[in-house]
Design a protein around this nucleic acid. Structure first.
Length: 277
DNA sequence: AGTTGGACCTGACTGC
DNA sequence: TGCAGTCAGGTCCAAC
């Protein structure tokens, strides 16, 4: 599932493969993918004829900086896949948006479930791009400090797992890494945010960074449903390192207690009832 | 303002 | 074999 590590893997590969390329033609194969784009300026007007000068990321969002100045925002949703291929390669069943590049290549967004999307803005300044400005600090960025985490959780009554996945508080965590970070910190994911104490903040902050950094190193997590693939079509390797996610009933790797699965707001929450308090 | 629950979306899987 | 039901989850929106 595309969370920060998967988005970062794609960002790095895009940087190598499309930086410097000029978009010559933009085609939207399914309208849902551009549901957030205003009629004017249109996606086409903001992308065609512009050069990709940089590829960035904030949380789970991938940004292509264009020249003349504009920004193309890519959200992977839960089944989004970015591909770079020849522009004459036939589109797949789930190919949704195609950006033809000068020189015969093409940047594509495939997305079976269409929770993802693309949106372009007439500025290269992140502060001028509302979806980016609404995000909290990137979970691997310098602004995500232990103090920020503590202030964020203070007085909150929602469960920790929900707060960690709230992108306006800290950007980059989805269900998999939020569950893994809670385990690594030894904190129960359903505790109210405001109930955490200073040692919890320190452990959790440390755990978030450690888990995400390791997942980036292993190029993300690909579960059995096979939805996440990188730019080359290769799966990530972090699924081998999962310690609680999707391990209901299996022994905790620290204490052998069977992992518990609970439900919160329709999402699965995984934890060790003995190691996480 | 913070929190909660449903809707969106499609393919894989399960049980009868 | 076929079909209905369930599950997965990022994000947005309405309701409390």
């Amino acid at each position: 599932m595309p969370e920060l590590p998967e988005a970062e893997t794609i960002r790095r590969q895009l940087l190598r493969s499309v930086r410097g390329a000029v978009i010559t033609e933009t085609r939207v194969l399914h309208r849902r993918m551009t549901r957030n784009q205003p009629r004017r300026p249109s996606l086409r007007a903001l992308t065609e004829g512009r050069r990709i000068t940089d590829v960035g990321r904030h949380g789970k969002m991938v940004t292509l900086t264009l020249d003349p100045p504009a920004t193309l925002l890519i959200r992977l949703g839960m089944s989004g896949q970015v591909l770079v291929c020849r522009d004459d390669a036939p589109p797949g069943d789930h190919t949704r948006v195609r950006f033809r590049l000068r020189g015969g290549e093409e940047l594509r967004l495939d997305d079976m479930r269409m929770f993802g999307g693309v949106q372009a803005f007439p500025s290269a300044d992140p502060a001028a791009i509302p979806p980016l400005a609404a995000l909290g600090p990137d979970a691997l960025g310098l602004d995500f400090t232990r103090e920020h985490l503590a202030a964020t959780l203070r007085k909150r009554t929602a469960p920790l797992i929900a707060l960690l996945m709230n992108q306006s508080l800290v950007a980059g965590l989805g269900n998999i890494y939020a569950n893994e970070a809670c385990f690594a910190a030894g904190v129960h994911p359903l505790r109210r945010g405001g109930d955490l104490r200073r040692p919890d903040h320190a452990a959790l902050h440390n755990a978030v960074r450690r888990v995400l950094a390791e997942a980036v190193r292993l190029r993300g997590t690909s579960m059995r449903d096979g939805l996440y693939r990188d730019l080359d079509g290769a799966p990530g390797d972090y699924q081998r390192r999962l310690r609680v996610y999707a391990r209901e009933g299996e022994p905790c790797l620290r204490c052998r207690t069977p992992i518990t699965r609970a439900r919160h707001q329709g999402r699965s929450v995984f934890f060790c009832a003995k190691c996480q308090r």
